[in-house]
Amino acid sequence: MDYFLELFFGGLTRGSIYALIALGYTMVYGIIELINFAHGEIYMIGAFTALIVAGVCSLLGLNLISILILAIIISMFYSAAYGYTVEKIAYKPLRNAPRLSPLISAIGMSIFLQNYVLLAQTSDFVPFPSLIPEFEFMEPVAHIMGSSELVIIVVTAIAMVILSLFIKFTKIGKAMRATAQDRKMALLCGVNVDRVISVTFIIGSALAALGGVLIASHIGQINFYIGFIAGIKAFTAAVLGGIGSIPGAVLGGLVLGWTESFATGYVSSDYEDVFAFCLLVIILIFRPAGILGRTNTQKV
């Protein structure tokens, strides 16, 4: 039973991170029907930013909790700025181009950002400090769930609640939903769609950075390539849940996290990815639009 719970919380932890990244894919897709291939790189940049912030802060002698909070906030802002800029440079000029063009631009941006970090940093894995403290009250259950897993799960849950409230009740949140449902009508209501798109990229990037910092601290090492791997997984999660659907991205992330965790724990860690993608194929056979996706009729 303990082993099951350990795998369960391990899967929940992974799944939380996938969900945080998947939200960026799904929100951007919902609004401009673009797969933002550079999104994984934004997550990776978030992790590197946190590494630098953590380095500077520990030189200044700050305590662990303040370093964690500062690292999260600064890397969220920094990644948001990257996400905003990527959209302005790589996608906005192609808004009216054939659909393939922004897709190619997205892949180009992804390669560029990877190599930029590769050159600016190093190609090796670099150690990432453990920013999440070990809580004493977690000791009795430490064999099931570690402190950093608890923090990841709780922080992710809080971020999801804030995001839902934002989208449901704020003016710009409503404008985001309206734009996703009917772009032309949103324009006719006076929505500045360019601004809505920017906000979407900013929010998605900040969430990815949050995921990046948390998981880097949990795993303890990063390199320039982590964005690619996590990006593919999170994209899988988004498709699994139904791309364009926000609850779908969260659900997809969790389902993927659990699948990987249980497959690794009960079968073999060699087949982790195989199970993940088998699950994707199976779900897409029975529900082509994803678990919570709508089978939309082609827009006219």
């Binding site: 003016k171 939903r177 449902q181 009508m185 006719l188 209501c189 006076g190 929505v191």
Partner: peptide, 24 residues
């Protein structure tokens, strides 16, 4: 404009649709 085909936001409530009208 009230466009051809109405273009109601389908997954927003009646109230939210009206809110969108007063967006600016």
């Amino acid at each position: 404009q009230v466009p051809e085909g109405r273009l109601i936001f389908p997954r927003m409530t009646v109230m939210e649709n009206l809110d969108m009208g007063a967006y600016l």
